[in-house]
Simulated assay, not measured.
Amino acid sequence: MIERQHVVNEFFPEADAMREAYDLKVKDPYKQTVSWQYFCAPQMYTYLRTVPQQMFPEPLFGRFMQHMKQWCIDHLGLVPMGVPNLHLMINGCTLGLHSDFHNGTWGFVYSLTRWQSRKFSGGETLIMRDGVPSYKKHHVQGESLYELVPAQFNQLLLFDDRIVHGTQTIEGSMDPIEGRIALVGHLRPTSPIVKGALDPAGARKVILDFHRQLAEQITAYKEVQGTLTFRLAIAASGEVESVTILTNNLVTPATGYAPSAEVEQVRNLIQRAAAALRFPAANGKSTVTAPVLVPLPDLKAIEIVVPHANRPARLQEVLKAQLKDIEAQGFQIEHAGDEFAVREPLAGSIRIESNRIAATFDPPMWVPSQRDHFQVNLKESLGMLARIGG
Rank of each mutant, 00 (worst) to 15 (best):
V83T: 15
T229I: 06
A41K: 11
D23E: 13
G179V: 00
A290L: 04
V132W: 10
A182P: 02
G82D: 01
A233T: 01
K195P: 02
L88E: 00
V194Q: 07
F108T: 08
Q32K: 11
H139Q: 11
V266N: 06
I357A: 10
N85H: 10
V8A: 09
R114W: 00
Q322E: 12
A261Y: 04
W36Y: 09
H186G: 00
Q168I: 11
H75R: 14
V7D: 00
P297N: 11
P59A: 00
L228Q: 07
E241Q: 12
P176G: 03
G330I: 04
S191A: 10
W36Q: 02
L86H: 04
R180T: 01
V7L: 06
P80A: 04
F101C: 07
L346P: 12
L157P: 07
L299H: 10
A220G: 11
E241L: 09
M89K: 01
L78W: 05
V8K: 13
W106Q: 08
T105M: 05
E241Y: 01
M44I: 10
K31P: 01
Q70P: 02
L208Q: 14
F120Q: 01
Q213N: 12
E58L: 06
E239T: 10
E353R: 15
A220E: 13
H335L: 06
E264H: 09
H308E: 08
V224H: 10
H373F: 09
H186L: 00
A273K: 15
G185K: 07
F159A: 03
G131N: 10
G337D: 08
H102R: 13
R129K: 15
G284W: 00
A201D: 15
Q53D: 12
L148N: 12
G77Q: 03
Q213C: 06
T105V: 12
Q53L: 09
I352A: 05
R311K: 15
R351K: 15
G202E: 13
Q141I: 05
D298R: 15
A359Y: 05
V8R: 13
I333H: 12
A233E: 01
L145Q: 14
D199E: 14
R267A: 05
M384C: 09
E223W: 01
I350G: 07
T105F: 05
F340I: 09
P312S: 13
D161W: 02
E143R: 15
L228D: 01
G82N: 03
A203L: 06
F108I: 06
P13T: 03
G179W: 01
T167L: 04
L157G: 03
E344G: 02
Q265W: 00
A203W: 05
S121T: 14
H186F: 07
P200K: 05
I193M: 14
Q316Y: 07
S381Y: 12
K137M: 11
F39A: 08
